[in-house]
Write a protein that binds this DNA or RNA. Sequence first.
DNA 1: GTTCCGCATGAATCGATAG
DNA 2: ACTATCGATTCATGCGGAA
Lengths: 274, 274
Amino acid sequence: MIIEGDAAAVLQTLPGQSVQLIVTSPPYADQRKSTYGGIHPNEYVAWFMERAGEMWPVLRDEGTFVLNIKEGAVNGERHTYVLDLIQAMRSAGWLWTEEFIWHKKNSYPGKWPNRFRDSWERLLQFNKQRKFAMYQEEVMVPVGDWAKRRLNELSETDLTRDESATGNGFGKNVSNWVGRDLVYPTNVLHMATECGNRKHSAAFPESLPSWFIRLFTTVGDVVLDPFCGSGTSVAAAIKLNRIGVGIDIDKDFCHISRQRVDAATLESCKLSLL
Amino acid sequence: MIIEGDAAAVLQTLPGQSVQLIVTSPPYADQRKSTYGGIHPNEYVAWFMERAGEMWPVLRDEGTFVLNIKEGAVNGERHTYVLDLIQAMRSAGWLWTEEFIWHKKNSYPGKWPNRFRDSWERLLQFNKQRKFAMYQEEVMVPVGDWAKRRLNELSETDLTRDESATGNGFGKNVSNWVGRDLVYPTNVLHMATECGNRKHSAAFPESLPSWFIRLFTTVGDVVLDPFCGSGTSVAAAIKLNRIGVGIDIDKDFCHISRQRVDAATLESCKLSLL
DNA sequence: GTTCCGCATGAATCGATAG
DNA sequence: ACTATCGATTCATGCGGAA
């Protein structure tokens, strides 16, 4: 279900304790001006906390809030509004459980005299209480793929400089996994951004919300994205047989989202027949 | 050179404006109690800032301070002392230029009910002013395989995209790209942790300080590690023909460091004969 | 049906120029 | 002096058409 409107208002219409997972990538400060009007970094925390306050009653006590965000560079310095945001969330009662790293393999190109390309984003996990639902087995990784991916990275990057340490550490580590089928992942996720022919400004890849949906919800749970954009998270939820709810203030985005959601629903129907 | 003592005191004995790069992995809060006495997270910022204040006059104006740190989990939550530390550094006049991510490829296995293995650490870059020394070419990495195809015959896209400029950009572009086999890295570093043959309980791999030493200094510059532990950074500096200075409060660590430094110096001497 | 190749496009950032 | 706009720089990916 896609609802058009400001999350601050729409959230008040949702029933309390109904959502198991909020996973969202809100407009970053001073970004996406064309679609969201661009919130100034200095006003961003107040803007966000107003909406986070409405999310609290909607989220189930054992639910989880995953926030994808990254601060930009201003006057040669990283802006601190994300740090302020974490502190503000804690002051409001949220627990800052974890910070995952999304390593974007295809980051935006460019060259500057004082800085390299920004190739990662934060995935902040907040909870209402220390005990929350987590299904770790759902995101386990086949050991074969794990090893293959690591070896790929080895050849691609400057890891060759790390010969001695890599040789010892990696080899030793591999021997630990021999004989196992599945291993638990870490808090570093490697995924490429979507920069294909979609109309919308490329959000995160569907595999990202999909990962957190499998980790923090089970079939039939409600997944909410209060800034759903083109509906990536909602479509991911539906494909995983969760109930996806998306909110966006932009009419065109809502239209795109509904099309994606319908396509995902249809796909789920077909799969259920097999 | 390895100096035994508390960094707060020893730093006062170093000449001003003498250090081009400070790269260090200080004792983490509430960690390594057996060796450093363990600073409580709530006292950590004050403890650190006292020493950072002594680093300021020692560091050259165009120099850089790279800090390797990661907060642990306390009562199911990530502690916020690193966030507080960044804010405190900025209040003291330091510029928070960048946050690199060190992705530890071979973090130790382990399982917790509410958390995956922590596989990354922060590398905070601070500067005294916006203009600082940076030698980006020294850390370039091999280009991806995609380049071979594309550069065989330069596509029209590159031409048209550069046409939007003044028109002479294209010719420049060709000369820059043809035959290129190296590209600039990103702010995500993939390096394995060093396996624990060292006495130091949290040693980072030598490739890590080595990378920053090549990036932020040139031959003959002074590199300082005020919490040098087993001397990894100092040895790395010497192998790169920089002047390495290490400080540590622990006598045994200083002993180990001196042995490593001597070995590195001897190696440099041998190499210079070739 | 595979594989290969051309191609557009990104949550970017800085410095210079213009108002 | 300070803000707003614009040009320049650059790398990895997935899509669609072609071999």
